[in-house]
């Protein structure tokens, strides 16, 4: 085991049962998440990146099932465990405290009839009851860390914009200082200006609190701006993994190359290029 490994995914296989037989969604993935890094997982829809995330978090639901492999998790100050082999009770004790999740479409992940403060309280008391006394100071501090006013504590989810909700969830995900936060498409469906705020806040999580982040996104711009290393998934396999600069500058796999080349960039105007053949 490398000293700096936080998560080691070995030969992970996740299949979906369908009426036409089993379909592999994750097909033999080996991937290591290093302590303190931001690891990006890139790929288009159907590449298996979201399935990989839910399997890692043990949130996989039928008809999906783990067909093989292991996920070794080495939380700080605790014995190493295989996330896939562990029972529900033990898993619950890890959630939020060691391993937390920033779900896709955070808009729907909050309880609409509870104030933000109460939602924090629920999570903290459920998973770390010994912190009851710190609640009053802890929640405003967490909100400030993601650039929100403490007044947000008293607000209901419908009073918050999409970007603010996303940041509330981000604050919640780091409330119990987990070793690992998995963010699934954290900027999808947000406006660009807010995307930038979210990316900045995610970077702060790592820089200021040493959280290890796994960021799943189909947007190569997000990876270029945020992550240290990036793993590119295609048809259930990790086709390339490496330092983000290396992957962008010298992609080894043809799929990675085409993925990067297909992004329109401001400053390069293909419409001046007369080589493009008109249709007729």
């Amino acid at each position: 085991m490398p000293d700096d490994a936080l998560v080691e995914i070995k030969d992970l296989r996740v299949h979906y049962r369908t009426t036409q037989g089993d379909v592999p969604a994750v097909d033999g993935v080996d991937l290591t998440v290093r302590r303190g890094e931001i690891l990006g997982i890139a790929g288009e829809s159907g590449s298996g990146k979201s399935t990989l995330a839910v399997a890692l978090l043990r949130l996989l639901r039928a008809p999906g099932y783990v067909a093989g492999g292991s996920i070794d998790f080495h939380p700080s100050g605790q014995p190493s465990v295989d996330l896939l082999a562990m029972d529900e009770r033990r898993l619950r004790s890890l959630r939020w405290r060691s391993l937390s999740y920033l779900p896709q479409g955070s808009m729907n992940s909050m309880n609409p009839v509870m104030r933000v403060g109460e939602q924090f309280r629920d999570v903290i008391l459920e998973h770390a009851p010994e912190r009851r006394n710190q609640l009053a100071t802890m929640v405003p501090r967490l909100l400030r860390q993601v650039g929100l006013d403490e007044g947000v504590v008293r607000m209901y989810p419908h009073e918050l914009s999409g970007g603010m909700k996303q940041r509330v969830l981000m604050a919640m995900s780091i409330a119990l200082e987990p070793d690992l936060v998995v963010a699934d498409e954290p900027t999808t469906a947000l406006d660009v200006t807010i995307q930038r705020v979210i990316l900045q806040s995610l970077g702060d999580l790592r820089d200021e609190f040493g959280v290890t982040l796994v960021v799943i996104s189909h947007d190569m711009g997000v990876h270029a701006q945020l992550v240290d290393r990036v793993a590119v998934m295609y048809e259930g396999k990790v086709v390339e993994v490496g330092d983000v600069r290396q992957v962008f500058k010298q992609p080894r796999h043809p799929y990675t190359r085409s993925l990067i080349e297909s992004i329109p960039r401001i400053g390069e105007a293909p419409w001046r290029d007369e080589k493009r053949s008109p249709v007729a």
């Binding site: 999409g162 406006d191 660009v192 995307q195 930038r196 705020v197 900045q200 711009g221 500058k249 960039r265």
Partner: peptide, 29 residues
């Protein structure tokens, strides 16, 4: 324009965005 994430790790943002200003620009809930 300043908010578009450039797909190039060498062109990362070096400045920080003013979160309050961005919040004001975001559509109301």
């Amino acid at each position: 324009l300043a908010s578009v994430p450039q797909p190039d790790p060498d062109k990362r943002w070096t400045d920080r965005i003013d979160i309050e200003e961005a919040d004001r620009e975001e559509a109301a809930p």
